[in-house]
Design a protein around this nucleic acid. Sequence first.
DNA 1: AGAAAACAATCAAACGGTTGCATGATTTGT
DNA 2: ACAAATCATGCAACCGTTTGATTGTTTTCT
Lengths: 337, 337
Amino acid sequence: MEKKVPTIKEIAKKLNISVSTVSRALHDHPSIGLRTKMQVQKLAAEMHYEPNQTAIRFKQGKTFTLGLILPNLREEYFSSVISGIEDIAFKNNYNVLIGQSHDSLSREQKIVETMRKHRVDGVLVSISKETTGIDHFKQLDKYNIPVVYFDRVPDVPGIHSVWCSLYNSTIEAVEFLFSNGRRSVGFIQGPLSLNIKNERLGGYLEAHRKNNIAVNEALIVTTDLSKAATEESAEKLLSLMERPSAILAFNDQVALDTIQLAKKKNLKIGKDLCVVSYANWPITSYLDSPPLASVEQFPYEQGSRAAELLFKLLDAGTSAEAIPFENIVLESKLVVH
Amino acid sequence: MEKKVPTIKEIAKKLNISVSTVSRALHDHPSIGLRTKMQVQKLAAEMHYEPNQTAIRFKQGKTFTLGLILPNLREEYFSSVISGIEDIAFKNNYNVLIGQSHDSLSREQKIVETMRKHRVDGVLVSISKETTGIDHFKQLDKYNIPVVYFDRVPDVPGIHSVWCSLYNSTIEAVEFLFSNGRRSVGFIQGPLSLNIKNERLGGYLEAHRKNNIAVNEALIVTTDLSKAATEESAEKLLSLMERPSAILAFNDQVALDTIQLAKKKNLKIGKDLCVVSYANWPITSYLDSPPLASVEQFPYEQGSRAAELLFKLLDAGTSAEAIPFENIVLESKLVVH
DNA sequence: AGAAAACAATCAAACGGTTGCATGATTTGT
DNA sequence: ACAAATCATGCAACCGTTTGATTGTTTTCT
């Protein structure tokens, strides 16, 4: 009844040779004779031998596993990131262990701990919206586990990162609105921790400067991404005496909540109010009044680039020197619907 | 420079005792004296000792990892399932290794292989739409890896499964349409492999029987879930001489594609045509013309129940007898918007 | 006081594979 | 024909932890 999986030992016994010979034969080691090599490989195939990964991981002191920490899997954005990462990981014969922080710092801390205990070989992180420092990632250094931050990157020096610059696209987005005759553009910011290098705001301001349009501070509001907070901020904008004729929203979720509210107030989207945002959700194509345009951030590519960088670090780690901190910046792109 | 993680051996050396004593002391083994136990635990804490999971996994012949195979992470439905599974896994100190089949049989087969090689302790599967048999899961038997199917369950005997019955909800959904005066209800079926026990169709027919309404075969069409196929089928329905006044769609994605097409044909949703479907996507609340109702299938609960069942199998596996095949059926619920 | 019982700690094997070093056999060079 | 070089294989340690069997010491019982 009890099924037994064949081991290298049994192969050795059946052929009356030593385990080391079998091991080397299976690895095509040059010092093994052709005859034995063939014999071993033939028998191994017949017995359906498969190396015990658990043993190898143990012996090599590596888990061949990457840890991936991200806010959630629900957002299409992150599931695309995963595909990018998995493809690279798969090529390197690595597994990916996923942990969702659900945008909570304490959960993120727990996950880091789990990853450390699991002895993953490296970690990829997109930080939670509550995360401001990276102290809880420091513990990984002691275990020589390299970390690559992506997408939501903490604003501190001395890290490896991959992210997507929003500056140029934001300028483009705002100018797109200007050129459509909408010179009063509201801006709903996200949580401070997620404003990578403040690029959204920077682009927003620069677009105004370039076009000689004065910035109205009252048009800049903030949300923590919860529906309630977004509605409150949108309400602020929409009830201004000089109501903006367009809104730049932190992302498509914020855009949807804003549009929903605007409709309740009987504003015609596309006429009374135009909305542009970030993320470029596919689902928006099903909406009657979607954002007019959205900034695509190429999650798949961010994921794969981040994974590539991590593997580079892993390779270097085995050999010699510390790699200088690398920060890869991709360009985003405004997609007009 | 090279950081070293402390091991049980070093603790033993520092205290001049044997490794076995240390091991047992850390596990609170009764045959270790209180004094030594305290000493060991104190020193272990000071040195920040942490057991090497890799070694333990190897020694115990267990990976403390569950394999989870599902079509994709993009669908909100499946990300909820994951949460349900992760919560249970976490309670049992297990990790979850995720593989996406992307609804392709060949990918699914590869993933099963990966999981086997990785020697996961158990597997949870929601099959791809191309999957009809379960031959490729048979290899797991040889490794004593139990499998629990959930949600998309293959229609074969001799398996453990957790799924959500749609029969009653379908009857309710169709009757809901009838009671709204819509007696001509089209039905867009999904891929045959996903029609668990044909419950949607069964419910559809039963609702007609109960209400003495004749079934019009022309009103029953099929899609493979691709947008093109859905549109083709929807087109078939909407261009009938006797156009149905309502449609029961396989899921919310199909519903959205159908609604989009209907709008293009200038039909008023909610007036000329009512749509009900399955899945209950949260995003539909942002639509101007969402499905009128949707059947909620409780993904979180399905995930957690499936994981619980798997752990039950794992526990039993270590001890004695084979567990009789268990099939847990949950009830779905019609949610009217 | 002497045997039995309870306690505390150690020894050593085992898990499955990898790898540096040693050994024996065969071939090559002169 | 004999030393040297080359080739093929085996030995044994090792990775970190767990655990059954064993030894040695102390307490308890009669």
